[in-house]
């Protein structure tokens, strides 16, 4: 009888070893960060985050997708491409990011005055609406309005290097323009298509003579869960595991009986 108890003890011990461990969800601790090169006369750059290369050879008008970074303070250094270790960075600064938030770090102004502007990005639009904001990153250009061609302003009086608040508008195709506050068109944005559930940042970049707009997506409509795309008909499901385990168990039991019987015969 003692043997039985010790065997059971072993079973319990082994079950303990196989007990599933609970893993923390690492995504919750992170923030999202993207980098935009909006300095019209700056060279292609490498971007280092905490001394680690995250972007290589990004030219003017390049933007990264969002990168997942831990919450907290990060050192951001921007070097002319390939010059780390040989030259000083053109920008060296820190950016503080909160968990669960998204940010854009934009290198703005002419090379002479280049600086990093960090802004927080919206991660949600009302269902069925599009959400948009405008950033004025054209050094030396006057204050601008943005609105439909021949229509009222959606955004007024944006000055360098300002980023407006977000505004929710109906999704659809818009013939927008960026114009000076006296109505002169600077940039034609005819056929700008804004989708429902999306959040956009329209950053005006370039020079006063050669302005253009980068339309970045800050967010999109997302489900809270992945889809349930299988019913298990072809799976090695756990019922199979039960079967195989039972089979092995019975085999072992049989072997045990044989063994004890042989011993008693001997």
């Amino acid at each position: 009888m003692k043997k039985l108890f010790s065997s059971l003890a072993v079973v319990v011990l082994i079950l303990g070893i196989f007990a599933p461990s609970v893993l923390a969800d690492s995504h919750d601790q992170n923030a999202m960060l993207r980098v935009l090169h909006a300095s019209p006369d700056a060279p292609a750059v490498d971007v280092y985050l905490n001394d680690e290369a995250v972007v290589e050879g990004a030219e003017f008008k390049a933007a990264t997708d969002y990168m997942e970074v831990p919450a907290g303070e990060h050192t951001v250094e921007i070097y002319a491409a390939g010059t780390k270790g040989e030259q000083d960075p053109v920008i060296s600064t820190t950016v503080n990011v909160e968990a669960g938030m998204a940010y854009t770090a934009a290198a703005i102004d002419n090379l002479e005055n280049i600086q990093l502007k960090a802004i927080q990005d919206s991660m949600e639009a009302t269902e069925g609406m599009a959400k948009v904001r405008v950033g004025h990153f054209i050094p030396g250009a006057p204050a601008v309005d943005v609105g439909p061609i021949g229509g009222d302003d959606l955004f007024s009086g944006a000055e360098f290097p300002m980023v407006t608040d977000y505004m929710e508008i109906d999704p659809g195709s818009y013939d927008l323009e960026v114009r000076t506050t006296d109505g002169t068109q600077l940039i034609d944005l005819s056929g700008t298509n804004l989708e429902a559930g999306k959040v956009y940042s329209a950053f005006a970049v370039g020079t006063a003579d050669n302005p253009e707009v980068l339309l970045l997506q800050d967010s999109a409509a997302m489900p809270t869960m992945m889809p349930a795309t299988g019913l298990g008909g072809t799976a090695d499901s756990s019922s199979n595991a039960w079967m195989y385990a039972a089979l092995l168990g019975v085999l072992a039991m049989g072997a045990g009986f044989m063994l004890t019987r042989k011993r008693s015969e001997a």
């Binding site: 385990a245 085999l251 039991m253």
Partner: peptide, 17 residues
């Protein structure tokens, strides 16, 4: 003993599978 052995093998292999 063989009963316990069978049980043990069953549990271990079930966990493993």
């Amino acid at each position: 003993f063989p009963l316990a052995l069978g049980l043990l093998v069953f549990f271990i292999s079930f966990q493993w599978l």
